[in-house]
Simulated scan of single mutants.
Amino acid sequence: MTIRVAIAGARGRMGSTAAAAITEAPDMEFVGALDYKYDGWYINEGTLIEKAHGVRVYTSLAELYQAHQPDVLLDLTDPEAVFPNAQKAIALGIRPVIGTSGLTLEEINQLQLLCEQKGIACILAPNFSIGAVLMMKFAAQAAHYLGDVEIIEMHHDRKLDAPSGTAVKTADMISSVRTPHLQGHPDEQVNAYGARGADVQGMKIHSVRLPGLLAHQQVLLGGEGELLSIRHDSFDRKSFMPGVLLSIRESVRHQDFVNGLEQLI
């Protein structure tokens, strides 16, 4: 079976890398691009052209579906676009695979309900990197024994949301095994707002945004007389492609909502 894949956000850096990976995969076909502009244009080897050569761009998911009947919509857009895109996809019977972070808990719950009603899968992956998923799982295992945790996530300066979806997911996974408690001195004085980072049940998350970075995260777990550091670094967007392809393949095998690539590994 050849999996027919449409991409929302195919003109972006992550989207163009994913388009190339899907095109090279023997069991997949890149059939259409969903965008908010350039309707009727074409994407040919990562370049946007007006000539009818390559994969067509659509501004309407309904029209894209009518023309190509994609099995999967890979969404690599932004938090404002991804939720309505996923709603429309599920209504049409297209399985969303979402690589955009920033969805609210209410939106995630709504998508889960829509998947249950429609009987199709939706995969939400805050991070497609296999190494990053393993880092999160290892951190959750370690937190059984070392419950004082701080997370430092570092991304490029064009990233919109803070903290990152990966950091939030890491904190959620750790929270499932960690007893909530405050860390640091009980009378701690914070003299500059935000100096201690975001608070998640007493854990701290620190977000760094700088040019030259791509996607990096370090989880620090402290104990009496010791420190465990678990770190993952993505230096190239190609590091996300094995997870992208895995998620697409798994989406056609599932009939439910999957929150996190760790559920598939």
Rank of each mutant, 00 (worst) to 15 (best):
M1C: 08
I3Q: 03
I7R: 02
I7P: 02
R11W: 06
G12D: 04
G15M: 01
T17I: 07
A21S: 12
A25D: 14
P26D: 11
D27Y: 08
A33L: 02
Y36H: 09
K37I: 11
I43R: 00
G46R: 02
K51D: 14
R56Y: 11
S60W: 06
A62Y: 05
L64E: 06
H68S: 11
H68A: 13
Q69L: 03
D71P: 08
V72W: 02
L74V: 09
F83R: 01
P84K: 06
A86P: 01
Q87S: 14
A91Y: 00
L92F: 13
I94R: 02
I98K: 01
T100Y: 04
L105A: 14
E106I: 09
E106Q: 13
I108K: 11
I108W: 02
Q110V: 14
Q112A: 11
L114W: 07
C115A: 15
K118I: 05
G119T: 13
A121V: 09
S129G: 11
L134R: 14
M135D: 04
M136P: 01
M136C: 13
K137L: 15
F138E: 12
A140G: 10
A140E: 03
L146G: 02
G147S: 12
I152V: 15
M154E: 06
K159D: 10
T166C: 06
K169Y: 05
K169T: 04
T170W: 00
T170G: 04
A171P: 09
A171I: 04
A171Q: 07
S176E: 09
T179E: 05
P180Y: 00
L182S: 12
H185F: 10
P186G: 05
N191P: 00
N191H: 10
Y193Q: 10
G194H: 12
A195S: 15
A195G: 13
G197Y: 08
A198K: 06
D199Q: 08
D199S: 12
D199R: 05
V200D: 00
Q201T: 06
H206Y: 10
R209I: 06
R209P: 05
H216N: 12
Q218P: 00
V219P: 01
V219A: 01
L221N: 00
G222T: 13
G225P: 06
G225R: 12
L228S: 09
I230V: 13
R231K: 12
S234M: 13
F240N: 02
M241P: 06
L245F: 11
S247W: 00
R249E: 15
R249Y: 12
E250F: 05
V252P: 05
R253P: 04
H254P: 03
V258R: 00
E262K: 07
